[in-house]
Design a binder for these strands. Structure first.
Lengths: 244, 244
DNA sequence: CCAAAAGTGTTTAAGATACACCCATGG
DNA sequence: CCATGGGTGTATCTTAAACACTTTTGG
């Protein structure tokens, strides 16, 4: 009936220090895992993890299972990005040295984007054909995956400014400085600590745990947690559907 | 390979006076065309227009062709809304008297939303099983289409505030009052004419045509057109892809 | 001249930004 | 007591909202 087969792919973001992945220190930045293609088309190129949609699987469910298979992680946040379905998107890319696909295999990809926690990503099991890359320094990708990653980054940077998704990169409790560092890394610019504090407090998304973080060689910062009543990401009527 | 067939549906919005469709006068409001289902499941119920994805058709292309088949219209604006693919979404709805679907026919729907012009919608050819309904007073719909329409309305109302999509409801040139009426109808509240003028002027999306609209029994208003250089709807990296 | 909507000006309030300054802890 | 980041106060700038007022047409 339908003229296309259906796949689900996921853009997975983690926030890590910019040295080698798994080490501490240095600037924090966004990283994402890619898988190396072992078949034509684009054999040998890096691509977004994904796979065909299972018979009785929901779309978000398929994205979650891809994420688990690739990294062994569960997403802290998951949202649909876009459905890509141009007939030519499996073919050659302009200016690319990649091998063009044989035509006839039409694939529509429903793409999700996910955020995983800092600590969890560190412990992520990594397979033979899986590697993490800095989001701002990617190799040439298969298919139209470069456009997809670019769009996912754009969505993430927009959304971090009007929702509380930044919390997905952190643990259950955190200091305002840690939260601010997430914002700074995602947005790529520094923020005034004083004004950041006021903005977050005014938004009402934080709760004071009453505890402080000790062991630092300066005044101990308070620990906060996110207010459960505030939705992780405002998606309107889709809210109940998105994070079930 | 894939366990689901693929369909493309479209939520089509027109802005019309709230009397009977095709007449003048009264409040302006959003209307949308629905088609009556002539087969199980949900036979006799109203549903969003749509159909299976053609073999060599792009997703947006399929949405446009559905729109043409249903209303004879070309969209002034078209954007992907969401891909719906829960395995149970073809089944019965809670509290509904509709007939549940036979299971086994899994359908993933990529849904688009479209805006059509006032004047064009008036001349739209209407088929036997197609009827326009006010967006705020819909009958019970088939499948999960009520949720889909609700989400489309939410997106439209959000987007009208930070993009220039309102122009899609108007002709090539228009007065500020006409533009304001579009905003008021979509948002469902009145806006201060003085402040509206300043906001729009400050945003830089309008160009003065130098002409005025005559024949009104008060001071003739200026006619404006939209600045081509400003993108119709900011979709970031997808901009080039969205309106091609 | 009058009604009606176009268009301008002004006042006020709210929000964002910049930055000075005090606080509390480890060493 | 000093260095360091946590946390507070405040002056300033920008933007949005409310609303009085002037302008220009048709009747």
């Amino acid at each position: 009936m339908s003229g296309a087969s259906l796949a689900v792919s996921t853009v997975i973001f983690a926030l890590r220090s910019s040295g080698r992945f798994g080490e501490d220190g240095g600037e924090r930045g966004l990283w994402l895992p890619l898988v190396r293609r072992i078949r034509e088309p684009y054999e040998g190129r890096w691509a977004l993890p994904g796979g065909p949609l299972g018979e009785s699987e929901g779309l978000a469910e398929a994205a979650t299972s891809t994420l688990a298979k690739t990294t062994g992680l569960a997403p802290r946040y998951l949202e649909q990005l876009y459905a890509f379905g141009d007939p030519e998107r499996s073919g050659e890319q302009a200016g690319s040295a990649g091998k063009p696909a044989a035509s006839g295999d039409r694939v529509v990809s429903v793409v999700y984007w996910a955020l995983v926690g800092d600590d969890e990503a560190r412990a992520a099991r990594i397979g033979q054909n899986v590697r993490w890359f800095p989001a701002d320094d990617l190799p040439a990708l298969a298919f139209d995956h470069e456009l997809i990653v670019e769009y996912a980054l754009w969505r993430l940077r927009n959304k971090v400014e009007y929702s509380r998704i930044a919390s997905a990169f952190l643990g259950a409790t955190f200091t305002l400085a840690q939260l601010r560092e997430v914002y700074e890394a995602v947005l790529g610019r520094t923020l005034d600590p004083a004004n950041f504090r006021r903005q977050i407090e005014a938004s009402g998304v934080l709760e004071d745990t009453g505890e402080v973080l000790t062991g630092v060689r300066h005044r101990p910062p308070r620990l906060y947690r996110y207010n459960q009543a505030v939705d992780l990401a405002d998606q309107g009527p889709l809210g109940r559907l998105a994070q079930k």
